[in-house]
Design a protein around this nucleic acid. Structure first.
Lengths: 242, 242
DNA sequence: CGCTGTCTTGAAGCGTTTCAACACAAGTGG
DNA sequence: CCACTTGTGTTGAAACGCTTCAAGACAGCG
């Protein structure tokens, strides 16, 4: 907890450097909420976008920070997590290039409620609340795109919430493995440390470790070096839990 | 489980009756996503709205149902819940007049993933996907209103998800009581049965009952007839869990 | 290479669930 | 209006799954 406490307490400001030299247009074409627009519209929006970069481990924002911008991940990886009142950390989701965060504060309030931390060196595009609102009014299709994405995210987190509320740790882990395996191949790399995975699945690193070795002993998976996991018997896994 | 199974299995169709006699305009003025519009715009939208009514216990939609409409609650109460793979039910939220549901299917897909059930006699306004999309494009402010609401909902469920993942049943219950008490007075009525509350908080009715009597024994609350609860010592509750 | 953080494993303890039985309240039909 | 039925809430005892703490192995990074 000690070094965590240091990280989570707000000492000093974001230690990122603005980076105006980046080509903003190349950023915007990556972004689902903008990339359907005409070229000249994208160029117009690009002018309002600021580009920032963060080193691994840097905090992009923390609870209580004033929030007046939408953040879009251009490259790298960002984890969004909350600290519960009891001090336990829960990983909510991981942003990959093209994903955005900060939408809440654009409409309702002006402080963040979670942490955003760069998991590796990361480039972020930022657009301020007034600018974005201007574009939302000017180009309704952006709102509609955002609505679609938020709806989907809502659906995903409702699912996650249900699984926390009703499923055992083992089942949640198996679900996660199966989902990860489908996106990639039957052999895949865990997208995060077991510590983070534990936080994501609402459990402890010890439990994750135990369950993984149990699944290996039962012949369902094999753990390989460098966080690689190979699923040997998907059918068995699916059957084991209906 | 037996009578539940009957309810959840799809036997026959929605047994609601359309009710064109209702004044749609009075409905639309209740709805946050529309009520900022000009009168003539609301009247225009009203023409695309269909009004339905459901009796207590009727299912409005169930997983797998094709979804191509936004549902807005005009009067009554609707509970949205999911069934986990293990068959356990989890209550996601309760819709009160003015709240809406079904947004996901408007953008992404065409089947529902959860149940919507009328908790009492309920009137619903429906607007179909093509109609709503037409209005979203015509009146961008509707999208922006919806974005605001979805952002808020996203925030709320992220919070809920975190609390499932990190807090004890007791703490979740206390949080719920404190929140309920603030909206209303220190004396308030549980907005649902203990069974539903258990499902909402991701636990069992037995645990809820035990925790409530424990809190009563410790002098924090008093349980009164008809699901009324009086909080005697909020300060103590808040201190007990920081 | 050595340090630091991650992963593993064991043993003990705890909170919650489960099952079962009963009390109670609400709603229904005779 | 009472008896009956059905669903909701209560309580106890046992069992279970998970966390916690502690200690050691291992891997990655400066």
């Amino acid at each position: 907890m000690s070094q965590k406490a240091d990280k989570h307490s707000n000492n000093g400001h974001h230690c990122c450097h603005t980076d105006k030299r980046h080509n903003n247009q190349s950023c915007i074409t990556l972004v689902p909420i903008f990339n359907h627009l005409e070229r000249h519209q994208m160029e117009e929006i690009s002018k309002s976008i600021k580009s920032l970069s963060y080193k691994k481990g840097e905090i992009i924002y923390r609870p209580g920070d004033e929030s007046d911008s939408l953040y879009i991940v251009k490259s790298g990886k960002v984890k969004i997590y909350r600290l519960s009142e009891s001090g336990k950390e829960q990983l909510l989701h991981i942003l990959n290039p093209g994903d955005f965060t900060g939408e809440l504060a654009l409409f309702r309030q002006s402080v963040h409620e979670s942490f955003a931390e760069a998991m590796e060196n990361t480039n972020i595009c930022m657009i301020t609340r007034p600018d974005l609102q201007k574009f939302l009014e000017k180009y309704p299709s952006i709102s509609i795109k955002m609505l679609a994405i938020l709806s989907e995210r809502l659906d995903a987190i409702e699912k996650q919430s249900t699984s926390f509320a009703t499923l055992s740790v083992e089942k949640r882990l198996v679900d996660f493995l199966i989902e990860s395996a489908q996106n990639q191949d039957k052999e895949f790399t865990l997208p995060m440390s077991q510590k983070d995975l534990a936080s994501y699945l609402g459990t402890t690193p010890e439990s994750i470790s135990r369950k993984l070795t149990a699944l290996e002993d039962e012949g369902y998976i094999r753990q390989l070096p460098r966080r690689k996991i190979k699923i040997i018997n998907i059918k068995g896994l699916l059957e084991k839990y209906q």
